[in-house]
Simulated scan of single mutants.
Amino acid sequence: MKCALITGGSRGIGKAICKQLAIDTDYHILINYNNNKEAALDTLKEVEAEGNTGDIIQFNVTDAEQVKTALDTWQENNKEATIEVIVNNAGITKDGLFMWMPQTDWQDVINTSLNGFFNVTNHLIQKMLRNRYGRIINIASVSGVKGTAGQTNYSAAKGALVAATKALAQEVAKRKITVNAVAPGFIKSDMTSELNEAELKNLIPINRFGEPEEVAHAVSFLASKKASYITGEVININGGIYS
């Protein structure tokens, strides 16, 4: 059984990615969630409605021991399974001006986006290297490419993720493992629900917020065999806001 693991897969962009991979691939979809089990089960229902299979798997990406235990337990129960695709999507925002930013807001955001990438990918990559195949896709952000005022912590985390993508891609390319990032702009989701779309869309050449599915299609392509000569790349999905 070949599998795709999506961290933070229960809602928003993560949910759209789970559903798109269920439509486009034969991968068994592993939906990671932290707290919201109901949302994860709802995503699983949508995966199954597309005629595919999946599991929900609970762990907090920031907790290395929890990540290891959850993934090892799952592997023990599914001895024939191989995780071929990792989508590092889990992320949080705690916006505010840097001069007033509490250290916890800095650390929490870095821990989720950047250390979460390390904890999950580092634990799984040796098996990918042994199998000589893999797809690692990191969900970055326009903030990590151009920087966004009021998001110094998030920009730092996502910018570091972009750099890590480019470095790791070079280390594992000979083993047919590609490592790429997608950098969404303003996408309709829980994370952007409090933003004023009517006002902000004027900043976007395409003049609207994006849909989660528009990110998911790019992730699905990068997860496929068709993308085997693309690695170390960052695909901006932002309606032209930064191009």
Rank of each mutant, 00 (worst) to 15 (best):
C18Q: 10
S189F: 08
Y154D: 06
N34R: 14
L195Y: 13
A49P: 02
V61F: 00
A81W: 03
G150Q: 04
A218H: 04
F221K: 05
T104F: 06
A140P: 09
S141M: 06
L222D: 05
N138T: 10
L161N: 08
G91C: 04
K226C: 10
K45D: 12
I57E: 01
A39E: 12
N238L: 00
A173T: 12
Q107T: 14
T121S: 04
S141E: 04
E214T: 12
L168E: 03
N115M: 13
A223P: 09
G232R: 06
L71G: 10
I17D: 00
A156G: 07
E194F: 08
K19W: 02
N35I: 09
R11N: 09
T148P: 05
P212R: 07
V109F: 02
T43P: 05
I187F: 10
G116H: 00
D24S: 11
A169I: 06
S224P: 11
V61S: 02
F59V: 00
G14T: 07
N236R: 15
S10E: 14
Y242I: 02
K188G: 14
N119R: 03
D105G: 07
R175M: 09
I139Y: 02
I6L: 01
V142K: 05
T25I: 05
N153G: 08
E171P: 11
N88E: 05
N122F: 05
K226R: 15
E84T: 08
V162E: 11
V215F: 05
T165E: 06
A181N: 11
S243D: 09
Q58M: 14
K176M: 09
D190G: 15
K146E: 15
N236G: 14
D42P: 03
N122L: 06
G134S: 05
T62Q: 14
W100D: 14
N202C: 07
T112F: 00
G232F: 02
V61K: 00
A22T: 13
A216K: 06
T53N: 11
N78G: 10
A49H: 06
A70Q: 09
F117E: 00
Y33T: 10
E233I: 03
N34V: 09
K188F: 10
I92S: 06
I23D: 04
N196Q: 13
E84C: 03
